[in-house]
């Protein structure tokens, strides 16, 4: 009975892994590597077919696709489905991390420390969570060093929280899909954008932006989740193997790739003549005056939902200072 099902229970199970990155992106390589590791570790029991480019589900439908079993494993951005990951979105707040490794490690840690996260991931088994390198401000035509410089500039914003503090700073936040960002910057529909270095390179924005202002204003967070039913059907042995391979290990690994890619992006941008300005602590303190109310609003919002917003935020800050 049980013994045989343990041994051959998952006889060559192939899982469909869907994500929105173009196949040329390094995350596709990461997934292929993960697939190989998984196959080795489970003695060929579990393997993965990767479907890049959102060919099986729209980018904002990935969580749903995994939860309902349309795909077995899904990777996407939490921010594409706002309000559905209230606690996870703590990492999207400004100044949460200086790099992707730190952000990813801390996100995974917080996720494991607070049981309240489980509701956000109902129907799935999170394999790992991670963040990209932090979002910076990129502008066309005008360099931004001070709060005053930003006055009246139209900036593409990645999240409602970012829009809120951009407005407080006197800028005009504009929402648009990322694939319109290039032409919008080129023609001057927007004067700037907030994005990680990774995205600047991926979306070719370094062709059109002139300046970068470094302040770690935002982090894009992403999930890799497996359908709960698929997970439950795996044998204990294979579940353990997957647990060992994913979690903190993959969060760190993915973070490293994003940081490395971010560094390459900086170099490439410099070669293209993008001028980079790093805000000093003093200067950032000026910005924080305008940005901090947004953080408080976030905490209040999450607390209103009956979730430990303050605790999670404090813990995230504590971890980021380590």
């Amino acid at each position: 009975g049980d013994d045989t099902s343990e041994a051959s229970g998952d006889a060559a199970k192939n899982l469909d892994f869907s994500h929105f990155f173009p196949s040329s992106h390094f995350m596709e390589e990461e997934i292929k590597q993960f697939s190989k590791d998984l196959k080795d570790k489970t003695d060929g029991d579990v393997s993965i077919t990767s479907y890049p480019g959102a060919s099986l589900a729209e980018p904002d439908k990935h969580y749903d696709a995994a939860a309902t079993g349309s795909v077995d494993i899904a990777l996407s951005v939490h921010g594409y489905t706002p309000n559905q990951f209230p606690l996870t979105s703590v990492m999207e707040l400004p100044f949460m991390s200086e790099n992707a490794v730190e952000g990813s490690k801390n996100l995974w840690k917080i996720y494991n420390e607070f049981d309240e996260f489980d509701d956000e991931y109902a129907g799935t088994k999170p394999l790992w969570l991670y963040t990209t390198d932090p979002g910076q401000l990129f502008t066309v035509g005008k360099q931004v060093k001070s709060v005053e410089d930003l006055e009246g500039m139209k900036i593409r914003s990645p999240s409602p929280e970012t829009s809120e503090w951009l407005e407080a700073l006197g800028a005009t936040p504009v929402s648009m899909p990322m694939n319109e960002n290039f032409e919008a910057l080129e023609r001057g529909v927007v004067d700037g954008t907030i994005a990680p270095w990774e995205a600047v390179k991926t979306w070719g924005l370094d062709e059109v932006v002139d300046y970068a202002t470094i302040g770690n204003f935002y982090s894009t967070t992403m999930f890799v989740v497996m359908n709960q039913g698929v997970w439950d059907d795996l044998s204990k042995k294979n579940q353990e193997a997957i647990n060992e391979l994913t979690g903190k290990r993959m969060a760190e690994k993915t973070g490293e790739r994003f940081d490395q890619f971010g560094k390459d992006a900086v170099k490439q941008a410099k070669d293209k003549g993008v001028e980079i300005y790093e805000l000093s602590d003093d200067e950032l303190n000026n910005w924080k005056e305008y940005i901090e109310p947004t953080i408080q609003n976030w905490i209040d919002d999450v607390e209103d939902r009956g979730l430990p917003g303050q605790k999670v935020y404090d813990r995230a800050v504590e971890l980021s200072n380590k």
Binding site: P22, S24, G53, N179, F182, E183, K201, T202, G204, E207
Partner: peptide, 18 residues
């Protein structure tokens, strides 16, 4: 130009969009 799909090609292949 403009062309939605050439922008997409640029993003997928990292060829210069301009």
């Amino acid at each position: 130009p403009p062309s939605v799909i050439l922008v997409l090609y640029g993003i997928l292949t990292m060829e210069p969009i301009g």
